[in-house]
Design a protein around this nucleic acid. Structure first.
Lengths: 169, 169
DNA sequence: CAGCCAATGTTGAACCTTCAAGTTACTATA
DNA sequence: TATAGTAACTTGAAGGTTCAACATTGGCTG
């Protein structure tokens, strides 16, 4: 990666990134762009699923009664409620999920059907194999630990920044 | 994050992720999902740009003559040529970029116009501020170094896996 | 209990990306 | 110098996501 891809000094008063931050940033951007693309490509080809759909199905499959309230599922899947709602509608039509309203509460649950469960069970092995090949085969145990810590730290900062409105994102 | 979101053992012969890998994976997925969303939100609100558009403009602005062949620019921006072409078309209409065919070669260049340059110069300060707030304010210098290394290692593995067809992504 | 407020969820339109097919124009080969 | 091959780019359609507006329904307060 060459020069200054994050824009060059133009306004006095703006604090730019130092060289190490620049490099880390460019590399991180590449990662967050390419990794999802790679995951989608594999899942699309092997199972005709988006990674988001897979993640939603997998999340439900790990749940106590294979069910979860939509708003909680959205959080779990790092998505907006709107995005989730559209996808649940699609997967409901496919027969993998159904909606069920919660008595005595204002929410509704997404429930994984048997067909949905079968779908994840079928999609999981090639996907996990791909995750291993795309990422973990290149990392030592120590690096895996570092990855957890670093990603965790970034998520914490992300949440803090968004909550405070400072990052205005 | 609770249980086993990557699907549970169902097929003998599939090698699953160990506990540390699982945790790292869930955290990484959260990051690659939320970070781009946060970047898009900020740029959309402050500058009416997608992060990808910003990145393309910034990449051009860092280039020798503010120009780069489309296929190279696509690589630089971690995107397909198709995606880039659509976006260049849009930005051409906005007056930020123009296409110029390369004599004696079969490619064409994207060239950043003065208006395009003005647009990046205006968009950069709030964006950099946001990047700092969203990510770097939560990381020590040592962590920034680790981030470069780790992201680099993952990208290397990603490329290797995709090239070999093993990860089939 | 009435009325308001806030949380939850849905929807359609606009927008963006992907995918596959098609075009163009160099390059190599005979 | 034909001809085939291929790299570079474009395009339209299909599909996914976001955004904003709307509907529904509990919870809270007077």
């Amino acid at each position: 990666m060459s020069g200054n891809d994050e824009g060059k000094p133009a306004e006095p008063g703006t604090r730019w990134l130092d060289a190490e931050q620049q490099e880390a940033w460019l590399t991180l951007i590449a990662l967050v762009t390419r990794l999802p693309a790679a995951l989608d490509t594999q899942l699309q080809r092997d199972s005709a699923l988006t990674h988001f759909e897979y993640f939603v199905l997998a999340s439900l499959s790990g749940e106590a009664n294979r069910r979860l309230q939509l708003s909680l599922l959205a959080q779990r899947a790092n998505a907006s409620l709107s995005r989730l709602s559209h996808v649940i509608t699609k997967m409901e039509k496919a027969g993998w999920v159904r909606r069920e309203s919660i008595r005595g509460s204002r929410g509704s649950d997404a429930v994984l059907t048997d067909e949905g469960m079968a779908k994840v069970v079928e999609a999981a092995p090639p996907h996990v194999e791909s995750v291993r090949s795309l990422i973990f085969d290149g990392l030592s145990a120590e690096q895996v630990r570092q990855l957890s810590e670093l990603s965790g730290a970034m998520l914490t900062q992300l949440d803090k920044s968004i909550a405070s409105g400072t990052g205005r994102a």
